[in-house]
């Protein structure tokens, strides 16, 4: 299998961060809030044999109850806002929310449209963003690395004083 050398570098740095912040296990719940399915495809590609994100301690989980991180894609359509809120509430602390893709950041090309709410941050608190339309798997991994590098400590429990 043809591997990208940079992938290994990013990967092992990512793994260190996952160890540091998430005890070596980062569970991701992906939520599509009206994306065009391009970002989903790229996120799904993270699990294929090329990127194999699992080996860095990162895995996708079926329920928000199991998740440490919500990867939200799409501009958040009117019809998905409520579902997104519920998924956020269903996720136990500590949790990170990452808006993936230009649309998720601020609505992208759909910004202003009657049918969308202009990005994830309009509906739930967003911790980080990953730009791109869609961001490629490698970009997603680089961005995750940058995100985790920036996170000094394990994500704080919001609402806890």
């Amino acid at each position: 299998m043809q591997q990208l050398p940079e992938l290994e570098v990013i990967g092992s740095a990512l793994q260190d961060n996952v160890r540091r912040l998430f005890k070596g296990s980062l569970a991701i719940r992906q939520i599509d809030t009206g994306s065009d399915n391009a970002t989903e495809q790229e996120l799904a590609a993270l699990t294929n044999a090329y990127y194999d994100i699992e080996r860095f301690g990162i895995h996708f989980v079926p329920s928000p109850r199991h998740a440490d991180m919500l990867l939200v894609t799409g501009p958040v359509t009117r019809n998905m806002a409520e579902a997104l809120k519920r998924a956020y509430d269903a996720t136990p602390h500590p949790k990170l929310v990452v808006a993936v893709g230009d649309d998720a950041i601020d609505g992208g090309i759909y910004k202003g449209s009657y049918a969308v709410l202009d990005g994830v941050s309009q509906v739930i608190p967003v911790d980080y963003q990953i730009a791109g339309d869609p961001p490629s798997p490698l970009v997603i991994m680089q961005s995750l690395l940058a995100i985790l590098d920036g996170a000094k400590k394990a994500p704080k429990q919001k609402g806890q004083s």
């Binding site: 409520e82 579902a83 997104l84």
Partner: peptide
């Protein structure tokens, strides 16, 4: 650890 109660996870419906 904090235990909170919420809605049953329902896939958004």
């Amino acid at each position: 650890q904090r235990v909170t109660t919420g809605r049953t996870w329902d896939g958004g419906t």
